[in-house]
Design a protein around this nucleic acid. Structure first.
Length: 522
RNA sequence: GGCGGGGUAGCUCAGAGGUAGAGCGCCGGACUCAUAAUCCGGUGGGCGCAGGUUCGAUUCCUGCCCCCGCAACCA
């Protein structure tokens, strides 16, 4: 039985349409999932939508539909996005599903049985607009007699009965967790932030609401619904069949939660505390990615630069988009995207470097080697060097993937391809054709073999294009996993090759001619 | 206020006590197998400011100026 690997995206709040931030997280996690599958793991990849909470309820009301219908309608858009992005997720969870109610109530009961949940009342200055409570010192009384919160929104004194989770009791255990599992939070900067936050002291957490009912009822006290984050985080467990025992149970604990940097605390403080309380194993790692900015500006509805992922796929094509996002932005950091950046990056690396290397070598093979994989002669040190670099690639890639450094994997592939272009130019097979055909055959063989290895490792990132590349290399569908990177699995001399065709066309910029500097799809 | 991370070539960034690096861009050359691609060479930086330690600092220390993150509920 293969080793299991369970990874998740955060579940999206489908209060509006999916945007590029959702797409980014999904694409990255999808690439990680694909990598692990190709590397022989039994992978479970989960994504979904988080459908409860007051904001969903409010938006649904505004639109005059029930929250459930609203959730269903918007969640469908996220499913569509996952499909459009070539998603390989094994499940798509919606927190309004019955299975999730069962799981959430089960974990609640475990926490309650552990003595970590108690009823009290929550009071304070509450801003409906901000959905937040503020302390006395944060509130100012103005001449109109109304008090205002720090964001300038009106606040009212609210006193609400609420269940609390004894988070304060977990401070030491959490610090031990971070201490003993330095890889629990990535990247490292995030870890430091969390540690200092927890060290500064934890307060018990209000984990139920009575002011609205769009949520999961608290077991035994149905006028309360669970706080959205108890509900939301539990989705990761739900998908494994919790609390039942089934074929997916063994996937828990999750190996990796991929999340946005804005929700680090929920995943690295609350979530492990909930699990400890419930007596359940903890996920192995939580990795926070950064945000994407549209040409340096944070996207927002008011600025009007919210980018629809469907539009990006239309303009650039899926693989170009995937490649750009995963290559351009070091995973874990913030990054920028722009029309020019997408075109430059993908033309330079996908079309000019990788695509062209395949095309120049395969078209020579088609013309001068009877369209069969050529038979190599003895290797020179130049041959050995590129082959060695191509062998190193899997090792490098695995290490990078386990740190979620997706960009580093692609950088290593590009470096190999660059070296091979240099090698190709240096060996001049077009000249060897006349002077030393055997040597030409060797150079072409080595090049094609390197392209094969690069293509195999490219699959998680640009699945469709990598498949096309492997097609024109004559690599059978069942010979594309990472175990095929072993030296003895190299291209077989004499096997037939289909006619070569370009795999990564250059992006020809029509927009530049039409509306000049503006760039970017609408 | 506090804690943390930064300010290095036009752009994005790497680096590290001993005469500054990569990719992209730009300029020139080569080649023609190839997707006007590729290869070679070159251009380009007072390494935020001011002090200090040192034979020598961009790299260590101090102060200052900017930027960004965290500081209990938006991917």
């Amino acid at each position: 039985m293969a080793e299991r690997y369970y990874l998740t995206t955060a579940i999206s709040y489908p209060n509006g349409r999916p945007h590029i931030g959702h797409a980014y997280e999904f694409i990255a996690t999808d690439a990680l999932a694909r990598f692990k599958r190709l590397d022989g793991y039994d992978v479970m990849f989960l994504t979904g939508t988080d459908e409860h909470g007051i904001k969903m309820l409010q938006t649904a009301r505004k639109e005059g539909v029930s929250p459930r219908d609203f959730a269903e309608r918007n969640s469908a858009e996220f499913k569509k996005m996952a499909a459009a992005l070539g998603g390989s997720n094994d499940d798509f969870i919606q927190t309004s599903e019955p299975r999730h109610y069962t799981a959430s109530q089960a974990i609640w009961t475990l926490m309650a049985d552990a003595g970590d949940i108690y009823k009290d009342s929550y009071s304070g200055w509450y801003s409906v607009r901000d959905e937040a409570y503020y302390g006395e010192d944060e509130v100012t009384l103005k001449e109109d007699g109304q008090r205002y919160g720090p964001q300038g929104t009106p606040v009212d004194w609210v006193e609400e009965e609420s269940y609390f989770f004894r988070l304060s009791a977990y401070q030491d255990r959490l610090l031990d967790l971070y201490e003993q599992n330095p890889d629990f939070i990535g990247p490292a900067e995030r870890r430091n932030e969390v540690v200092s936050f927890v060290k500064s002291g934890l307060r018990d957490l209000s984990v139920s609401r009575t002011t609205f009912d769009w949520g999961i009822p608290v077991p035994g006290d149905e006028k309360h619904v669970m706080y959205v984050w108890v509900d939301a985080l539990t989705n990761y467990l739900t998908a494994t069949g919790f609390p039942g025992e089934g074929e997916r149970s063994a996937f828990w604990p999750a190996d990796l939660h991929v999340i946005g940097k804005d929700i680090v605390r929920f995943h690295t403080v609350y979530w492990p505390a909930f699990l400890m309380s419930a007596g359940l194993p903890l996920p192995r790692r939580v990795f926070a990615h950064g945000f994407l900015f549209n040409r340096g500006e944070k996207m927002s509805k008011s600025v009007g630069n919210v980018i629809d992922p469907f539009a990006l796929i239309d303009v650039y094509g899926l693989d170009r988009l995937r490649y750009f996002l995963l290559r351009e932005v070091p995973f874990g950091q913030d990054g920028n995207y722009s029309h020019d950046a997408i075109v430059n990056r993908t033309n330079s690396e996908l079309a000019n470097d990788i695509g062209n290397l395949a095309q120049r070598s395969l078209s020579m093979i088609a013309k001068h080697c009877e369209a069969k994989v050529p038979t190599p002669g003895p290797y020179t040190s130049a041959d050995e060097a590129v082959l060695a670099q191509s062998h190193q690639l899997l090792v490098t890639a695995r290490e990078a993937i386990d740190r979620q450094e997706l960009h580093a994997v692609l950088a290593a592939i590009v470096a190999l391809v660059s070296a091979t272009n240099r090698y190709f130019a240096g060996e001049e097979p077009w000249a060897l054709r006349k002077t030393d055909p055997d040597r030409m055959a060797t150079v072409l063989y080595v090049t094609a073999e390197v392209v094969r290895r690069a293509a195999i490792l490219l699959q998680p990132f640009v699945p469709e294009s990598a498949a096309k590349l492997l097609d024109i290399l004559g690599v059978a569908g069942d010979r594309r996993t990472f175990s095929e990177l072993a030296p003895e699995r190299a291209l077989r001399p004499g096997s037939d090759l289909p006619p070569p065709q370009p795999v990564f066309p250059r992006f020809v910029d029509q927009l530049a001619e039409e509306d000049g500097a503006k760039g970017g799809p609408k």
